[in-house]
Amino acid sequence: MSNSRRTFLKKITGAGSLLFFGNKKSAQANIPKVSPDQFGVLVDTTRCVGCRKCEEACNTINEDLPRKSVSVFKDKDVFKERRRMDFGTYTVVNKYKSANVSDKPVFAKFQCMHCLYPACVSACIVGAFTRDKDGAITYDSWKCIGCRYCLAACPFQVPAYEFSNILTPQVRKCTFCFDTRLVKGQIPACVQACPMEVMKFGKRTDLIKDAHENIKKNPGRYIPHVYGEKEVGGTSWMYLSNIPFNRIDFPKLGYHPVPGYTEPIQHAIFKWLLPPLGVYAALGGIWFFLSSKKKKVKKDEENGSS
């Protein structure tokens, strides 16, 4: 029942937006073009040994995060359960079973994917999130009003909210080391710290080429898919794996940018503020019509009675 109601509403809003302002094509033109020179990181999960040096480096470089001692990151017991990022961590490494029981376990590092068409930026109503032309998606805590729309919008469920802080809570997610390192011409701290060079920093277009070459050159070593090359329109962080990506907790997503679904409708409805004005105008008209009718009836009544 609710489903049919939802589809009905969808159709109505969709048709409405189409009726009012143009078709999807013109709406899609709103999505900015991505620079081919933007940076990215290619993560080869087959190399990762789960040493957690990236987590350590991340905690060291990001001084806003709660401080943790070095010994915390030497604890291998954390792999017993699947972890997610929270407001105190920008990145986590998880351990997964491999395809065959006899094979070695698979480790995968996870952090913000820094989408090319970020849903968090699109969802943020105050513009606290911005996408840099080099690929990093950064957050401005001064603008944030704490609505947490970004948490709901993210297809990878990355942003975390500082629920424990009552007065000045922030949304936290990986910064791509934008302020701390990228602007100085340095590569992200986790990439630098990794002893196995699991991650490779470079121009995104080069990395994609590299990834496909790697797959081709080593038959059987990887699954022939570069996760993040096309998912949700492409992400700056991309992954290679030897087991299916859904087994290392990467959701199966479409190739269409997430904001591409919502923005055409939103932008169409609120373009030039005309539709809201139109609605108010219509309501005002009805009100005026009804009130004038009422007056007439009253007048008639008065005339009749007198």
Binding site: R47, V49, K104, G185, Q186, I187, Q192, C194, P195, M196, E197, F201, G202, K203, D206, D210
Partner: peptide, 27 residues
Amino acid sequence: RKEPTEATPALLGAYHQQCLGCHIQMG
């Protein structure tokens, strides 16, 4: 020194990939 876009692994990566990679594979 690790160059940002260098394709060849730096010394740290080269040692670990070679030594640790072999240790893990041979188990």
